[in-house]
């Protein structure tokens, strides 16, 4: 259930509510109603949990430091205003608020909050790469709650899993779908944003550039600090790069194998049709390659074509 001291919770709620109201683009009369409904729910819920609702003093509340409160909650609140929802709906809405206020309180309360494990969602059509990343994250103590190779039902899964971080292949066409979810609030239980800007911190700009070059992009729940996210991104970037190298190695060894097979086949044909022994067949091929300044494999290809035509 709800953790932390009543004061903390109350102030967190209060800060959040205030931020909500500030961000609310609804007309004034709606804002006023919103305010009263929100206060009503807060009182109700706090009473249920035997907290003292009088701790809430909206007048003393400071605006939330991070302005990026996403429209989800705004719309939730709007809907609350319009529909007069059931008690349960109000409570669950507030619990959501509380859940997020925990992240916002991270600085004040980092000892307890940092222990909450972050849940990660991976979206990557390269199954092997996704597995590699998942294993690495597990080793570092992060839980991958959902791994998607097909993005067909991306929206559904984001709504269902509500991950803290989504790591998605930079080149996935579904990034625009995710971007859209950041503004379509009622279908997006968690606000998601690309992290820090290049001008905020040159170091983080460099690491983001490296992430982009590796093909990693990420969306995080608003309010998570860069400090908590960076290790996860670093793990993903390292594995994406590793995967790229593995694939290049595989590619070059496959090429080598294919070339060797061509040379072997040419040798066999020479032995069979020209009655050479193996050493002679090989040296013939090598001499041809040197004379024509071509690769052995290319010469072998020509030899095969000629001998098979005979």
């Amino acid at each position: 259930m709800l953790a932390g001291q009543p004061d903390n919770i109350a102030s967190a709620i209060a800060r959040y509510t205030y931020a909500l109201l500030l961000n609310l683009s609804a007309p004034k009369y709606l804002q006023a109603r919103c305010q009263s409904v929100t206060l009503f729910i807060i009182n109700k819920l706090l009473k249920n949990h035997r907290y003292n609702a009088r701790l809430l003093r909206l007048s003393t509340v400071q605006p939330a430091p991070n302005k990026g409160i996403q429209p989800l909650y705004l719309c939730r609140q709007n809907e609350l205003c319009r529909r007069q929802p059931s008690h349960d709906a109000k409570c669950s809405a507030l619990e959501q608020l509380l859940l997020h206020s925990r992240y916002n309180n991270a600085k004040a309360d980092s000892s307890t909050v940092d222990k909450t494990p972050l849940s990660v969602m991976l979206v990557d059509d390269e199954t092997d790469r996704a597995l590699l990343v998942e294993q690495a994250l597990a080793q570092h103590g992060y839980q991958v709650v959902c791994r998607l190779t097909s993005t067909a039902a991306l929206r559904y899964h984001v709504e269902r899993v509500q991950p803290d971080i989504i790591i998605i292949d930079m080149d996935s066409p579904d990034r625009d779908t995710l971007e859209h979810m950041t503004i379509i609030s009622q279908h997006n239980p968690k606000p998601i944003v690309f992290f820090a800007g290049p001008n905020d911190n040159p170091d983080s700009a460099d690491s983001i550039k490296l992430a982009i070059q590796a093909g990693v992009s990420a969306y995080i729940v608003d309010g998570l600090t860069a400090k908590r996210v960076k290790p996860i991104i670093d793990v993903a970037v390292a594995r994406f790069n590793e995967f790229q190298q593995l694939r290049q190695q595989l590619h070059s060894s496959q090429n080598q194998l294919a070339e060797q097979q061509l040379i072997d086949k040419a040798k066999r044909l020479l032995m069979k049709k020209q009655q050479m022994d193996e050493a002679k067949a090989f040296s013939t091929l090598r001499k041809l390659a040197m004379d024509r300044q071509q690769k052995m494999a290319d010469v072998a290809k020509d030899v095969i074509a000629i001998l098979e035509a005979l």
Binding site: E179, A205, Q213
Partner: peptide
């Protein structure tokens, strides 16, 4: 070639 406008925006923003 890029698959999404998000990718275009990020890559231009970070100089890729």
């Amino acid at each position: 070639r890029e698959a999404s406008w998000a990718s275009i925006r990020d890559k231009v923003a970070f100089g890729v």
